[in-house]
Write a protein that binds this DNA or RNA. Structure first.
Length: 539
RNA sequence: CGGGGCGUGGCUCAGCUUGGUAGAGCGUUGCGUUCGGGACGCAAAGGUCGGAGGUUCAAAUCCUCUCGCCCCGACCA
């Protein structure tokens, strides 16, 4: 149920893939016409090495993931292909949340302004990012619309829902028997960002926010760790993105939390992207909203709360973790289409025969649990179709032509394949009989390959640094890596490092997620340090 | 929110300096030939030049304001 296809673990057909970092695009043949007319339209996707930010935008456009709303500042339209990826994420996460005892619910989009003010750190953190609803109704005078009724108390469009959920938790919770209360909400939120980037930071975005209440701090802390583990497992198993998990410093902590835990992923430009957060809210919101319960001993106590979330920015994370110069690369477990079948024909008779066979094959593969698309468009030659589906990140392509029908086999091509002796990407011949099983295995291998490639990339770009000169060198210019370095634990040093290099502390790693704890001296101040922390530039 | 860049058919852009009433390539539509890695020929459609004011006989072009996008900062999923 986790994956959309059967799992057949085993040795990969290709063994170790050669090119861990490069693109597979180098075999591309120049177009015949490129010598004459300006081949401008050829350069649809800017190479990553040339301009990573431009590459990111090109891929979003060419893969049909999203576009800027334009008429609504900072907001985006998530297009069908992009939304389908989010739906795959949602489906898997939702299953994991329910498996850990959570129930979905939904709270209002609008939050009374006064609610925000009840938790001091929380207001301070979100005040500048709030969109505010101040009126109801419109009036039309000579065709000109204006605001009609001013609200007695303005509403804030939720930037996050701790406050309004706190209000309702106070109503719902009375006894220790009501605890733990484990709620999740799938919703949109709005934060008035000054600088936006599609998927990574937009004015409105989609996410999931878990909110739980517990009788003891211990139990709440357990929940925070449990959900961080859920995120880590999701990221690694489904997105094929390895992550470092740890604790945020005071500076980076969620507004209103006692502690914020996170998972951090490395993008191909060496920058970090926070892929999920889980907060220990302590009793901060319990006190602000008077969320109390009667304990077993009969005493009135404030509840201990948590909140945790991931958002549509994960789509951006997948792009920047796996994409190449040919476009999007999707791990099979997130791919809306696992396999695209491209029928190949010459005559009309062949076309009819091949297309019929393609649709029959697709039906069989769907019975095997695969998501299959047959691209039988007749206004385009096969080569163009290959490029289009590769741009969209489809993991495997099947080529089905007369020769294949005759031999009862198909040619398949993985989205990223090793090159053969002629420098062309390798294709594999698979028997029609038992194809679903064989493809399931291919997809499992591809999923694993992407994870291992991402992990190898991260390891190749992670360094331990002990001198300030070396630290500055790593982050010089546009450079970034994951750097394990000693830090004296002060906010002042953290800021000095950021001002000098733009690198920030992504997290203080949990045991097993970084170098073994060893004392040392701070890379910047020379003061004593208990352990190395993770530095990087970030999104 | 500061600094810089940019808005011209679906995409990438030319035209703007030296105002004269809109072009190219790709894509799209139709027909034909093609089809195992980005096809070709012929025909056609498609733009109040981001928006609003202003200057002018005349504005894509000059001036003012405004909206949006991109990059760099500051601030944050």
């Amino acid at each position: 149920m986790v994956s959309g296809f059967r799992s057949y673990p085993g040795p990969g057909t290709f063994g170790i893939f050669r090119e861990l970092e490069g693109s597979s695009a180098r075999w591309r043949r120049p177009r015949a016409s490129s010598t004459v007319a300006a081949p401008m339209a050829e350069a649809r996707i800017t190479p990553r090495s040339q301009d990573y930010a431009q590459w990111y935008q090109d891929v979003i456009r060419e893969a049909g993931l999203a576009e800027a709303a334009e008429v609504v500042r900072g907001c985006m339209v998530i297009k069908p292909h992009g939304y389908a990826i989010w739906e795959k994420m949602q489906a898997d996460l939702d299953r994991r949340f329910k498996a850990t005892g959570h129930e979905n619910a939904y709270f209002p989009l609008l939050i009374p302004l006064s609610f925000l003010a009840k938790e001091a750190a929380h207001v301070e953190g979100f005040a500048m990012e709030c969109a505010v609803v101040t009126h109801s109704g419109l009036k039309s005078v000579d065709g000109v619309l204006s605001l009609k009724n001013e609200l007695e108390e303005p509403y804030v469009v939720r930037p996050t829902s701790e406050t309004i959920i706190g209000h309702f938790f106070a109503k719902w919770i009375d006894s220790y028997r009501d605890l733990p209360l484990l709620i999740n909400q799938w919703a949109n939120v709005m934060r008035w960002e000054l600088r936006t980037r599609l998927f990574l930071r937009t004015g409105e975005f989609l996410w999931q926010e878990g909110h739980t209440a517990h009788a003891t701090h211990e139990e709440a802390k357990e929940e925070v760790r449990r959900m961080l583990d859920v995120y880590r497992a999701f990221s690694e198993e489904i997105m094929a993105v390895p992550v470092i998990q740890g604790v945020k410093t005071d500076n980076e902590r969620f507004a209103g939390a006692v502690e914020t835990f996170c998972i951090e992923a490395m993008m191909q430009d060496g920058k970090a992207l926070q892929a999920g957060t889980s907060h220990d809210l302590g009793q901060n919101f319990g006190k602000a909203f008077n969320v109390t319960f009667q304990s077993e001993k009969g005493e009135r106590e404030f509840v201990w709360q948590t909140s945790w979330g991931v958002s549509t920015r994960l789509v951006g994370a997948v792009m920047m973790a796996h994409g190449d110069d040919d476009g999007l690369v999707l791990p099979p477990k997130l791919a809306p289409i696992h396999v695209v079948i491209v029928p190949i024909w010459k005559s009309d008779a062949e076309k009819a025969e091949v297309c019929a066979a393609a649709h029959k094959l697709a039906a069989e593969l769907r019975d095997d649990g695969l998501s299959v698309k047959v691209d039988d468009r007749d206004n385009m030659r096969p080569g163009e179709k290959y490029y289009q589906w590769e741009r969209k990140g489809v993991p495997v392509r099947i080529e089905l032509g007369p020769r294949d029908l005759a031999s009862q086999s198909v040619m398949i091509k993985r989205r990223i394949a090793p090159l053969d002796a002629n420098g062309k990407p390798m294709k594999e011949k698979l028997a029609m009989d038992g194809l679903g099983v064989a493809l399931g295995k291919v997809l499992d291998e591809f999923q694993k390959f992407l994870f291992e490639r991402a992990l190898a990339f991260r390891e190749a770009n992670t360094v331990s640094v002990d001198s300030w000169a070396q630290f500055e060198q790593v982050f010089a210019g546009e450079g970034s890596k994951f750097v394990w370095a000693h830090w004296d634990g002060t906010a002042a040093t953290e800021k000095a490092i950021k001002d000098a290099t733009r690198a920030t502390i992504r997290c203080i790693p949990h045991p097993g997620h970084g170098p073994k704890a060893e004392s040392g001296v701070c890379v910047k101040s020379g003061q004593p340090s208990r352990q190395r922390v993770l530095f990087s530039k970030s999104y």
